[in-house]
């Protein structure tokens, strides 16, 4: 059976202000696959993840992104979420005064509405929440607290995966979900992610350690350096990176390239 093509990123270039960050990213993700996106700090992994989720502070200057047959870059962030895209943030945002459960219910019902489904009533919603909480073994008391406010680093990461478990995305991008988790938490979260895996969904795991990939085993590993995917391979590539670092893949000195300022070229 042909696997459904979920995501095609072609020659994606993007910048923030006048700093070029992505310099021609190509990536293809099919249903049922797990991809690992690796690369040193500052190589553009989060930028790619945020652009896919719809953060408008980045300007796409070239290339395209097709998500399930649609031009992803034309969709508002909420439309992307409603279409099944999910980003677990590297730095989950604190939302003071907004109750975690209320927030999640609003999110789930927005997505259900988009799909033409009825709102979940309070009883069904709570049942779902209870079940999914166990998946990530998250402390239920976090539900009645404001979203992420005062959560520890690990609690925030669990809350991201918990949201993912409730919202059941088709394409999940997990940005450094492993950082801030101790080894036990890492195992639990990874087990949760694995349990959510289905033939019709896919996960992109962003990390700069190999550690997480012992638990979430990728079908493909990509190395992003200076805004470009410089190497792709299978899970063995992650092990190689663990041993050799990234240096051998860096073809040019690191550092941000500035686009020339308009009018700055005087002879």
């Amino acid at each position: 059976m042909e696997k459904e093509r979920l995501l095609t990123v072609r020659n994606l270039h993007a910048k923030a202000g006048d700093i070029d960050i992505l310099q021609g990213v190509d990536l293809t993700v099919n249903a049922g696959e797990v991809h690992a996106l690796m690369g040193p700090n500052g190589s553009g992994k989060s930028t790619l993840a945020q652009i896919l989720a719809g953060r408008d502070q980045y300007e796409v200057t070239e290339g395209e992104v097709i998500y399930r047959g649609k031009n992803l870059l034309e969709l508002a962030p909420e439309e992307r979420a409603c279409e099944g895209l999910f980003l677990a943030f590297q730095y989950p945002v604190e939302i003071p005064g907004v109750n975690n459960t209320y927030f999640l219910k609003a999110a789930l019902n927005a997505i259900r509405k988009h799909r033409g489904e009825e709102d979940l009533d309070a009883v069904d919603f709570l049942a779902l929440v209870k079940e999914r909480l166990q998946l990530v073994e998250m402390d239920p008391s976090l539900l009645s607290r404001p979203v992420n406010e005062g959560f520890s680093g690990g609690e925030k990461k669990r809350n991201e995966i918990f949201q993912m478990a409730v919202l059941e995305p088709i394409l999940a991008i997990l940005d450094e979900t492993d950082s801030g988790l101790d080894i036990d938490a890492l195992r639990i979260v990874a087990a949760g992610v694995n349990r959510l895996k289905r033939p019709d969904n896919a996960t992109v795991v962003v990390t700069h350690y190999q550690r997480l990939l012992n638990y979430i085993v990728p079908d493909f590993v990509h190395v992003l350096i200076d805004g470009r995917i410089v190497k792709s391979g299978d899970k063995n590539l992650a092990l190689e990176l663990e041993n050799r670092g990234y240096d051998w893949l860096e073809e040019q000195p690191k550092g941000r390239r500035k686009t020339p300022q308009r009018g700055a070229l005087v002879s």
Partner: peptide
Amino acid sequence: FYLRSRGIDLEAASGLLTYG
């Protein structure tokens, strides 16, 4: 952006944050 990335539209996200 965080709220919108979860499917909540701009209006509702602004409302929620104001409420918070």
